[in-house]
Each structure stands twice: as C-alpha cells, then as structure tokens.
C-alpha cells in the first residue's frame, strides 16, 4: 500500500502549482507575477521583508473550457494575509472575470501591518464577488494549512459555492483571536481537535456553511471544482432572508 503515491496533495503544492493543477492544463496566464515586483511598500519600514507577489497569485485560466479568473493566496507569506497590493490584485481580476472565478483561499484575513488598507481591499473583493456571482459561478476552495479566517471568510461566504477538505478550516475569528477575546474557557487555541471540530472542513460541510467536502487530493479537487461550475451560478447564500429562515428554524421556542 502506498497511500501517498496515489494522490497529489493540495496542501503540499505551491499556489501556482495549485492553480496549474486545477485549471485546464497549460491554460493559466498569471498577471503581475513576482518579476513584476508589485510588492507591499509598507512592510520594509516595519522591518518585514516583502514577498514579490505580495502573497497573492492571480490571472486568467480555462476551467472546463470557461474563461475564468484564478486566484490563489499564499498561506506561507505572513499567514496568507491580505494587504493593499494583494487585495487589489484579487479585486481587479474578479472585476474583469468573464465566465466566473475560483479562489484558492489560504488566508488569516487582513494583514495587520496594513490595517485599513487591507480592510478596504477586502471590501472591494466582496463587492466584486457579489457582482460577478450574479452572472457566473464564483467558487472558493478552502483546503490549505492556514484555512480561511477574518475578512476573507466573509468573502468566501459570499461565493456561489465553497469546497473544503478535512484539513481546511473556515471561520470569522481564528482560534488565537477567540482565545484572546473570549478567554481560554471558551476555546484553548492549542486544542487542535476542538478547533477542527468547530471550524474544520468536515464540520463546516455538515453545517451547510460549506458545500462540498473532498480529500486533500488535487485530482478530486479539480473534479469538484468543475462540478461546482456546472451547478447553478445563482445559488443564494448569505442573504438576509436565508439567515432569517435559518434563525426561525433553529432558534429555541
């Protein structure tokens, strides 16, 4: 038995490898690659070395023949945080997308070093997702080591569909933030099973907060992504009406 020989791991792949493996072979065209040297101008003055793509890979790709926007956040760089440049890359590519978009989200949310600029960027991203999903699918994949937290969890929740793996985690506040704000009685950020039980892929799909659960396998993910694009592009999610309905169903009488 060779469990790993049988699969190609999403977790083990770099953001560019992930897009290349999920899109139609050879179809990905990156916009503003590292050699464009569009990195954050704010980090150096705070003593932080910048990554040349600002931790965000964007471009156009074909997905089952559709011309879509491809986005991958690099969880390795500053926890996959979204700053002004990386956020603008995502927002612009979504605004120009033709037949939909897929976002590979491995992000802790707003980049603290860029504070409000990251916040504004995420607002733009949310705006672009809502506009695009009216006419084409916008699919989020949350299957990396960091998960998807903070402002970007709102962006993910606005997508037409969310695909997760058991490794992925999805929530508004990261475990450390919950522990800090609500106390260790509420959540011990080192209690990994508790974290995955609350925010992990298996749980999120059970709850209906995410739609599809797949293993940590690029081939399985590629299939799930194509299936998601075939599903209704206008699936309603995170609308006020839906939340009211849920509340009516779940609230104790």
């Amino acid at each position: 038995m060779t469990p790993t020989a049988l699969r190609r791991s999403y977790v083990e792949s770099t953001p560019r490898e992930r897009i290349a493996a999920l899109a139609d072979p050879g179809s990905f065209r990156e916009i503003l690659d590292p050699f464009a040297r569009c990195s954050s101008p704010y980090l150096a003055e705070q003593g932080v070395v910048a990554q040349r793509d600002d931790g965000v890979v964007v471009g156009r790709a074909l997905l089952g023949g559709r011309d879509v926007a491809a986005v991958a956040v690099d969880g390795r760089f500053l926890g996959g945080s979204i700053g002004e440049i990386g956020g603008a890359k995502i927002a612009r590519v979504l605004e120009r997308a033709r037949d939909g978009a897929f976002l590979l989200l491995d992000t802790g949310g707003i980049r603290l070093q860029e504070a409000n600029l990251g916040l504004l960027a995420i607002a733009e991203i949310c705006d672009a997702i809502v506009a695009l999903r009216e006419r084409a699918p916008v699919v989020a994949v949350v299957a990396g080591r960091v998960g998807c937290y903070g402002g970007m969890s709102v962006a993910a929740a606005l997508c037409s569909q969310i695909i997760m793996s058991p490794v992925g985690r999805f929530g508004l506040n990261g475990p450390e933030v919950v522990e800090q704000e609500a106390g260790i009685e509420e959540l011990d950020a080192r209690d990994r099973p508790a974290i995955w039980q609350a925010t992990g892929g298996v749980r999120r799909v059970e709850q209906g907060h995410a739609d599809v659960l797949v293993e940590d396998d690029l081939d399985e993910l590629a299939r799930a992504l194509r299936d998601a694009f075939r599903a209704s592009p206008n699936r309603e999610r995170l609308s006020l009406e839906r939340l009211r309905n849920r509340f009516a169903q779940e609230a104790p009488r």
């Binding site: 469990p3 790993t4 058991p166 490794v167």
Partner: peptide, 16 residues
C-alpha cells in the same frame, strides 16, 4: 524535495 516523503502529514501516517 518533500515529494520524496512517503508521508507528508500526520494524516498520511494514520492512513499508512
């Protein structure tokens, strides 16, 4: 490269 590792995660060890 890490692709040489027979297991890349704890989950892989459990599967093995």
């Amino acid at each position: 490269r890490r692709s040489l590792l027979a297991a890349t995660s704890m989950a892989d060890l459990v599967r093995w």
